[in-house]
Write a protein that binds this DNA or RNA. Structure first.
Lengths: 158, 158
DNA sequence: GCTGTATACTTGACCTGTCAACTATATTAG
DNA sequence: CTAATATAGTTGACAGGTCAAGTATACAGC
């Protein structure tokens, strides 16, 4: 009976199976990944994500709006996240002389060091929990398929 | 300049691109999907997920522990989620005569109707935002690739 | 029968992020 | 120049979820 139930579940909505796998995989992998990142470096996934964006940005700085688009948080989410990073001394505010509305988030020296410290182990964790499951070819396929999903419109709407 | 920056970002950590696509896609799709589900039916994605599990379970009922494994929430998350569904009258508690520790979550008639009401439009939304981007073959590929990710310990019960 | 350990579930404290409303600055139209 | 509107950012209230600790029951070994 138990195996009947299981197979009934696996086949009951064939079209949605990809989505279900997607949701479950996301929940499981991010949970483990964020536990490790938190334990080893005291960072959330979003913290890391923002530090990474700033690390690779020109002058190590970005407007909050742009950050919110790339990291897929709302504007207020970014404000609160940056609050934390500023309190930790990893990011500071920068004013924009051409537009007084914008505030840049600027990576500090300490923040840059923090990112470089966390980076290696986090990339290794991603590889262990995610990347290593796929061949190079499969990685490319996966990135291509996922890349078709709608990003831009939802990211900046509102 | 802007396009240089973009391509630098796309190529700077080749091994992680799949993971990045994955994170972004998840954030964008779930945000839109949950907005629609909330607007049309007053349900969160997790609410729907739990209703669906119960809908397909024998006797429309499941132990909280099993629910937490299938939906990938912690035990306390399940308690709180079910609180809401119980307050709405969609789910009720059932006691287990062979083990006084377990409390079943049982779908009510109203809850069953609620699920059937929400189901069609939600599946259509999933199809529109996710499924329709892929051919049948690609769907299968995607499900297979994502299925390799580690959710076994949390997701699978005997 | 006790005693220790494992399991099922709940609760309080808390964290992250959302939404809606707000301030402040920029821009465009008349 | 002024009015209307759009954009950048912050804030209060709150939703959804986690973790750690606690309660209650089950079960296994002595």
């Amino acid at each position: 009976m138990s195996s009947q139930v299981l197979s009934a579940q696996l086949t009951r909505e064939p079209k949605v199976q990809g989505w279900i796998s997607f949701l479950r995989a996301h929940a499981a992998v991010t949970r483990e990944l964020s536990a490790r990142l938190e334990a080893q470096h005291g960072l959330t996934l979003s913290d890391f994500d923002v530090l990474a964006q700033l690390y690779h940005a020109p002058q190590n700085s970005l407007r909050r709006v742009d950050l919110s688009r790339q990291v897929l948080l709302t504007a207020s989410g970014i404000t609160r996240l940056l609050d934390g990073l500023e309190r930790a001394g990893w990011v500071e505010k920068g004013r924009c002389q051409s537009d007084a509305r914008v505030t840049y988030a600027v990576l500090t020296k300490v923040g840059l060091a923090k990112f470089e410290e966390a980076r290696t182990s986090h990339l290794a964790d991603i590889e262990a929990l995610f990347g290593s499951r796929f061949s190079d070819e499969e990685r490319a396929t996966l990135a291509e398929l996922l890349g078709r999903l709608p990003l831009a419109d939802t990211a900046c709407s509102e």
